[in-house]
Every structure is written in structure tokens, then in C-alpha cells.
Design a protein around this nucleic acid. Sequence first.
DNA 1: AAAAAAG
Length: 463
Amino acid sequence: MSVETFEAFNLHQDLLAGIQAMGYKSPTPIQQQAIPEILANKDMIACAQTGTGKTAAYLLPLLDKISHASHDHTSTLILVPTRELAKQIDEQIEGFAYFVSAQSIAIYGGNKGDSWDAQKKAITSGADIIVATPGRFIAHMNMGYVKLDKLEYLILDEADKMLDMGFMDDIMRIVRHLPQKRQTLLFSATMPGKIRELARKILHNPTEISLAVSKPAEGIDQRSYVVYDKQKLPLLQHLIQELEVQSMIIFTSRKSAVNDIVKALRKMGHTAEGIMSDRTQEEREAAMQGFRNKQFKILVATDILSRGIDVDNISHIINFDVPHDAEDYVHRIGRTARAATTGTAITFINEKEQYRISRIEKLIEKELPKLPVPEAFGPAPEYKSGGAKPASGENRNRNRSKNSKSSSSNSSNSNPKTSGNNPSSSTERSSSSTERPKKPFRPRNNKPKPQDSTAVQPPATES
DNA sequence: AAAAAAG
């Protein structure tokens, strides 16, 4: 069965207007599978990463239900691992719900100033949807004013990452405060035993969906260079000059390396910014906004950005080092070639990182091409396939599930923002996500353009 | 083995 249009799901017409304005044309495979099930109030455990249209797959049916309900209480809680993801999802909701009376709020820590009070206000006023990182949400819960007795929908996004970050106890603590009778959706890139266990605890008769977890999109050109550490920066400089870079993310596993790389890039004359957990939330958000708005080309990041973050026209991913988890490799390079475009992912491999490559290659089910380092950079290390293994412990065999069909050829139009670059992109975003705008929605960078002149126009943004 | 998230 293949559903060609969103109209076929019988969604609320105001929601369809938002979908259309966001530029979504036809549902992706995961949307085709998930939307009817979620509309039918089924619990769900879904194996899928962002980039497959996963977020919209749960947001659309939820918004449809919310649009038919009363808006005097919080009906939906979405838990995510990182602050940036919470903010991004909140903004996506505002886009879809542009013509629907549904309010959402992103709840996360780190902001100086009055974000706490604004969050408290939104919580007590009964925002329809809360998108939160677990820690800050629990902090609010501890204050006693969080009312969850009428909650209907719980969504755990990037659940494997959340467990990896030690959020199991926090999640269970939150779940204990929720009504037993609710719909729960669990999304995870991998299905280890811990996730199954969590699913057994909090889901009831879930529908299972599995979709191409471990395979990167077809549109990504993957390459690598085997180098000595000291060759990495010169090679990076060389590549930036050689390649036609629209936007680039340079990933590194170490926070300390973020600053070093940013400094080096600036010394080379490039404008670059860094993002990692040690920077203030204000700095993080400024970096994200500048990068989204193409104010600079190169963003250097830890794995804080490896999951779910969706920025238009990222032409290149550089793995300045080999990620520790093979899954993170797939997530990192998945920041490019989104929405059926193409992109290039280049990984730098030093001697000590070689052993991690075989596991990545096993996961992506193909060999990573190793390009020769240009002669000007001097002799490079030899690549030993299989690589030098560390003493022990690193050898644990992670059994990859065989159920990965070929990566969903992300239908060409799953990305809303390709439909129109909003010129007024200097809109204040950081404050808008923590405010409770009264009626009409505050426009955002990715807001859909109203196509219907009878539609409610948002007020002009202050600058 | 490193990173993220509550102050």
C-alpha cells in the first residue's frame, strides 16, 4: 500500500494547510506506515533515525488529534536527549501547527535569565505540547506545579541515545507521574536489549515499525583519509579549498578539540563557530542560528549535533576523528544529503582509530574508500584492514540486526525548508521558543509562508 | 572511551 498524499490520511484541514505551507508533498515510507497507526491510537516502537521524516511521522497525527481536542491542558510530552533537538522539534511543531490552535514549548536547561519563569508560565498555562530534555523537566516537576493527570501522548525520541546518556531513571520517574491510559510512542535508532526492556515497561501492545536504521542515505558520497594526527589540520585546510563548500560540519569526539579546530580555521582565514556542551546555551543557540542562516560556512561540533539536527544545504561532513560508536558515524554523516539531496562525508583516520573502521564498515555494509593523502603532506600511515586492536574490551561484538532494508529513498520533499528561504531570518528565535505568545503564532525562521490570504497573519516581529 | 544533561 502506498499513500501518495497527506490528504489521504484525513487530517484536519488546518493541519493540511500547514503541511502544504511547509512544502511537504507526499509522505515518506515511515510516515505512510506510522501515521495511520498513531491516528488509530496504537502504541508504537519504531526503529528509525531522523532524516527519514520520523519527526513529522509522529507530529502530524498528534497535531491532528490535538486540533480536535480542547486546549486547556498539556496533552503531549516529547522527551529528547539534547537541547538543540528540543528546540528544533518545537520549531517544527510551530510550522505544522501554524493554522492549528496548538501551543508548544521547548523545556530545557542552560539558559541564563528568565527561561525558567517563561517555562513555568507555559507549563502552568497548559501548553498543548511540551518538548523537553529530561533533567529540566524533572526540575519543574519537583516544584509541584506540573500537571500530568490529563496527559494523553508520550513520545520518546532518540530513546537509545537517552538511555546511553543515563536517562533511564529520569524517564521512569516521569512515566510514573503519567496516566496509565495514554498513547506511548518510542523511537530509537537501534534496538538493544535495554530499549526492549524499556518498551516492555511503558508500551502496551505496540505496533512495531522498522526502517533502514543502519544504512546512510544513498546520496552521501563517503570517503576517508588515513593520516597522522599532525596531518589532519593541513589536510582539512586543503580540502576546504578544494571542495565547493556550501555548509560544512566538522565533527570531533572531544570537546577540547572543538576550540582547537575553530582557532585553526580562523587562523586560516575561515569564519567558523564551535558548538559543544561546555559553551553557554546562549553561545550554542547563537552558533546554531548563525549556521542555519548561513552567516558562516563551517560549524565545528561534538556529537551533541550528531543526532537529528536538520540544517539545509549541508554539503560536507568532516569526521575529524573516527566516532567511538559506529552508530554515531551514521548519525553524523546523516546531517548531509537530507531531503534527497547529495552530500559528501570525509573521515580522517589516524593509526589509533583504524580499529574502529571495521565496525563502521560492517554497520554500513560497505567499505569506506581510503583516498591517498596528497604527496605534499608527506608519508601517511599504512591502513591495516581490521586495524590494530586495543588490548581488550573493544572487541565486543555488536550484533547488527538483519532487518535493515535499503535506506528509504527519502522522498524528494520531506524537507519543509527547501520550499522557501525566509528572508526575515534574523527573527529572534531563542526567546520566542520560551515565550507563551498569546494567540497568533510568532513567526520563526522556518515558518511556513501562508498561502491563503484569509489565514491569520502573525504580528510583525520586533527586532 | 567520549559526550550530553539539572544546578
